[in-house]
Amino acid sequence: MTKLAQWLFGITLFLSIWLALLKDLTPIKVTDENFLWISLIPVGLIALFGIISLIIIAYRVSTFNNCDEAAKELLKEIDEAKKDLATKGFKFK
């Protein structure tokens, strides 16, 4: 099953349960009070997923290592390399 099929399967399953709930086909009875809440479940889940995603991404951006040491070390090694290669007879352009 492709990832697309897995998602479609999951979404269809969810929507069927939700519609059954909404159409009063489950033991949980729909009342005037909870109707609004039940009908908002999908929107709520999407919003929740969005918020969690944003928090995760923001956290990962802020903790993305900067590797300044690695860059410095590389520059030093490039210097060494140029000197050593020159002594081995390599001509830089």
Partner: peptide, 16 residues
Amino acid sequence: DGGVHGWNIKRKAISR
């Protein structure tokens, strides 16, 4: 300990 050097915040955000 992985990471990048030479990327600004925008580049990091797109990548992440």
